[in-house]
Design a protein around this nucleic acid. Structure first.
Lengths: 250, 250
DNA sequence: CTTGCAGTTGACGTAACGTCAACCTCTAAC
DNA sequence: GTTAGAGGTTGACGTTACGTCAACTGCAAG
């Protein structure tokens, strides 16, 4: 039993380009090649591929992976080394983040906040956020209260991250809108998934509620104002895009 | 007043190649070019360079930096976005590290520890480490006790990181030894700096004590055994290299 | 026989430079 | 006046892990 490159790609959720690349760098050669040059893989190659992908998920580079699967390096010591690297990299990022934070504070001291800096409006302590939260609690009940309690405990780091996640998602969607794509274009749907993933930080929508949130975005002037600050007409575009997303994916 | 590319490079601690690169990508053009094609920079360029380097230290990519110094993007919102990215990247690494940790534990369950996995021998709870610590305390007194108390509080992440720092440093030195370089070669000295930096996690040596440690490495059979496991003759090489380092740098 | 999907081999692009190579220019010493 | 040495120039390749064409071939179905 042997499989073609596309079959292997589908089975292992990698692209055929990746498999060709692995062949090029000698990480995973196919079992044989057809007279036409096609690559054919068999059981042992699949097992090796699984091993490779497992190590890849751990963040190891292909070179190290190659040494490990070839038995040239001890897997355990390679992982220990990698673990140490991960820790120091993490610490480095933490230090950089601290410096960035200090810089932001210094800049904030001198400058007033501009509208752009408030583009997302999701500061949990803002008037607007509090008003929305109270209203939401009244309209949707105790679930919202749970969310409110959850997010109140988030650190400023987590807030910054989620804020940026939202910013990135709407930015991507807005760019597709700029490109003239319709709101139900597959690319737009895919980009809306970024918004959906972001929303999962707060609650888990279903088809109805996600589309409903889209309506709220366009109908509630406070939301609409936020969104249209990104691009004129963005709120309406989001409504359609979210509805399309809900239909296709939820 | 104008400066040549090498002068600017020295003043700002970047390479001239970097300055040429920044010119190529339009991030920092020189004030003028001589008839011979030489780049000449003046005050405004230096200021702009300082700004660029400051942002670079914060981990921003050159593209974003370009937009900021060109005034096309708000510095504050760019930094906020970057801060969010740093946090999510940090969290991603933490998750990967956890997975790696789990994998290591699984592997450890099945396999015996090999000599290679113990190459550094710096597990603080090992017999060997305890014996050395007790002896050191007897020989060098209360300073060692302080260090012992300090390291006892380190987390396993920190230990892994420091362990790997040591492993990397000795690996680099050993490779230079393989290449046949003498122990006082500038490249070796530079590599020994990695060992010195690692040692700073424990205590701060001076010229005498660092060279003394080198002697200990070669003379004390317990240390020598560790080191010679990396490469035969490595302990003796380290003694010379550390002595050379102490003379040149300390 | 055509259509269309799936396969092939290049080759370029990505980030931020490091590191040659081959050649030119300046400065100071002999 | 020459020469050595430091410093300048423009390419161009290498790094990571593929994505993304482009141009072409193979194979099965209508």
């Amino acid at each position: 039993m042997s499989w073609s490159i596309a079959e292997v790609a589908r089975m292992s959720k990698v692209t055929s380009r990746t498999l060709r690349h692995y062949h090029d760098i000698g990480l995973l050669a196919p079992a044989r090649r057809g007279a036409n040059g096609y690559r054919y893989y068999e059981q042992p190659q699949l097992l090796r591929l699984q091993e490779i992908l497992l190590l890849r998920e751990l963040g190891l580079d292909l070179d190290s992976i190659g040494q490990i699967v070839a038995g040239e390096q001890d897997q355990l010591s390679a992982l220990r080394r990698h673990y140490g690297w991960l820790q120091s990299e993490r610490e480095r990022l933490a230090e950089v983040a601290r410096t960035v934070e200090d810089t932001i504070r210094k800049l904030e001291g001198g400058e007033e906040m501009t509208a752009e800096q408030l583009w997302n409006g999701f500061d949990p302590n803002s008037e607007k956020a509090r008003a929305l939260a109270a209203e939401a609690e009244e309209r949707w009940g105790p679930q919202v209260a749970t969310v409110n309690r959850k997010v109140a405990k988030w650190s400023k780091e987590k807030w910054a991250q989620i804020q940026q996640q939202y910013g990135d998602a709407s930015q991507r969607i807005a760019e597709l809108m700029d490109a003239g794509l319709p709101a139900d274009d597959p690319q737009v749907i895919e980009a809306v998934d970024g918004h959906f993933q972001w929303l999962l930080n707060f609650w888990t929508p279903n088809r109805q509620s996600y589309a409903g949130l889209g309506d709220l975005y366009a109908d509630d002037p406070r939301f609409a104002e936020q969104l249209n600050a990104v691009r004129p007409g963005f709120a309406e575009f989001m409504r359609h895009a979210m509805t399309a997303y809900a239909l296709v994916r939820l």
